[in-house]
Amino acid sequence: MTTDTEAVRVTAPAPVPTQRGRRGGRRRGRGERSSPLWTWLALPGTVWMTLFFVGSLIIMILLAFGTTDLAGKPHFGTSLASVRHLADSAYLKVGLRSLVYALITAVLCLLIAYPIAYAIALHGGRFKNALIAAIVVPLFVSYLVRMYGWSVLLSDDGPVLKAGRALGLPSSVHIVNTNLGVILGLVYGFVVFMILPLYAAMERMDTSLIEAGRDLYGGPLRTFLTVTVPATRQGALAGLALVFLPAVGDFISAQLMGGPDQIMIGNLIEDKFFAATNAPLGSALTMVLLLVLLVGMFGYVRRARRDEMDAVR
């Protein structure tokens, strides 16, 4: 049994494979500061982001205190009406629902994506790139169009449920306008963003570590849990963030696959910006959502940095 703990100890500094890349990055980082060339090359991107990203954020913050005129045009101002509206309990309820949906979606995506990424990265052989392409290509078609397609396929009289009923599925079963429908839609829409970082992490993983684990008498499960999982944790964390963040703000899945009890915060924000021509309230809601997500992101960044420090140590 001692050999088993031995195996664990050997693999303990888990994200070893990323070590080289990280260190290299750091060294380059130090070089950047001394070379003016890199500063100049970073300038266009910085200006671009400042103008169009930070700029639009500032406009949105200001707009939260604005008003809308008769022709539907928003104006800046000092009105607190939108902020007062945020107290409506409907927003809290729908916001919490969105967070729960996004969390379930992220976990489901992880469970689905892990074996897929694993199979492609470690057993894909010469088909690796073709398989990854097959996963990415559907993204070329707009998410909205694909979701619309699902809503037709899964509708009550659609082919899926018709076939199901022919095989004895009770007619009371439906998919569109249920929690299941919305979460299926979200998982379908965002699972790719989980597969890609996981695949990248597994690709980078040094497979000799797995062999080492087996050599040290680790069983397949034990080796998987103590070698593969820690080595790909960063990919999984990145994937969770990449899935969770857009899923919280999504409105298309809830609109096409959901009913009255599946409305998400994105639907209410979209409603305020468009149907209600109330950009100020839409902006205020967006800012609140952004703040909540920033807190989550902060946690993620800290965790990622700690992993990085571990790797460098």
Binding site: A81, D88, A90, K93, P260, I263, L268, D271
Partner: peptide, 18 residues
């Protein structure tokens, strides 16, 4: 008027979000 519009919009949000 904007105030009336606001009241109707709040009612609608409450109906829709439950």
């Amino acid at each position: 008027t904007p105030a009336q519009d606001d009241a109707r919009d709040t009612a609608w949000t409450d109906v829709k979000a439950g």
